[in-house]
């Protein structure tokens, strides 16, 4: 499995798309840090990039990669290797290479210009989001037979998590504003990995404002390390579950 993953990793890291992705992130991050005289403001803008661009690129790239290496997968299947092992190594190879690209593109500027708690939180969020959305992309590609449909599903999922979901939550919060919504708000955020990443970053950046919340649930959540542990924990679950589902589907799939 490690051998296969390593092969996939080498293969991807050499590809032009990943190099372009790294350079793009590097350019954006360095420009932001050089442009703003106050680095924390740059981190704020970088946060938006991480929360929007990283899921999108991870998802689209992983989907395309899956379909492109379909023949390779078929070849591997003729060997005495189990299906789940093949898919898992494809997944880890892809996710690691995307995470490496992200860490090179954003990590180096952050370490140079803002090596504090907020910076580290940003890097952790980026890496987790990469793993989550690669895993979602694998699920989407395993479910759809042809490439166009697979990419379509991936794009729809990204659109849903990045934009539509928050709109829905906002309308729910307003529709039921007369009711106590504390736990519901937290539960709803857990259903979207992008929101979880955002809240994890907010715990580092906007804690003064978050402490303005009334209500015991929020106080426990924001006031201690419970919030950070919870968001990271659920994000890890978000990376594992779609991948497990993908493996299950892939095992039974008529290839």
């Amino acid at each position: 499995m490690l051998k296969l993953s390593r092969y996939v990793l080498h293969d991807i890291l050499r590809s032009k798309v990943v190099i372009a992705y790294t350079l793009f992130l590097l350019a954006v991050a360095v420009t932001l840090f050089r442009m703003e005289d106050n680095t924390s403001k740059a981190v704020m803008s970088l946060t938006n990039i991480v929360l929007i661009v990283v899921p999108l690129v991870s998802m689209v790239f992983a989907t395309i990669h899956y379909y492109n290496s379909y023949e390779f997968i078929e070849l591997m299947l003729s060997q005495p290797v189990s299906r789940s092992r093949i898919l898992m190594s494809e997944y880890f190879g892809t996710a690691f290479s995307m995470a490496t690209a992200f860490l090179a593109g954003v990590g180096i500027p952050v370490l140079l210009f803002q090596p504090d708690a907020v910076g580290m939180a940003l890097l952790l969020t980026g890496v987790l989001l990469t793993f989550i959305f690669t895993s979602l992309a694998f699920l989407a590609s395993v479910l759809a037979r042809d490439k166009a449909r697979g990419i379509g599903i991936a794009l729809m999922l990204w659109f849903y998590f990045a934009l539509i979901y928050d709109g829905l939550v906002l309308s729910i919060l307003f529709a039921f504003s007369d009711y106590p919504l504390e736990s519901l708000t937290l539960a709803l955020s857990s259903l979207n990995p992008v929101d979880l990443g955002r809240i994890f970053l907010m715990l580092k950046m906007d804690i003064s404002a978050l402490m303005g919340y009334t209500g015991a649930t929020y106080k426990d959540f924001f006031g201690s390390s419970v919030g950070a542990l919870y968001t990271i924990g659920i994000m890890v679950v978000w990376a594992i579950i779609p991948m497990l589902l993908a493996v299950r589907v892939f095992k039974k799939k008529d290839l």
Partner: peptide, 17 residues
């Protein structure tokens, strides 16, 4: 100010729009 629970969506892409 009118709906404090909405603070949870701060810094989301939706809110930026």
């Amino acid at each position: 100010e009118t709906n404090p629970n909405a603070l949870m969506l701060l810094r989301s892409f939706m809110v930026a729009l």
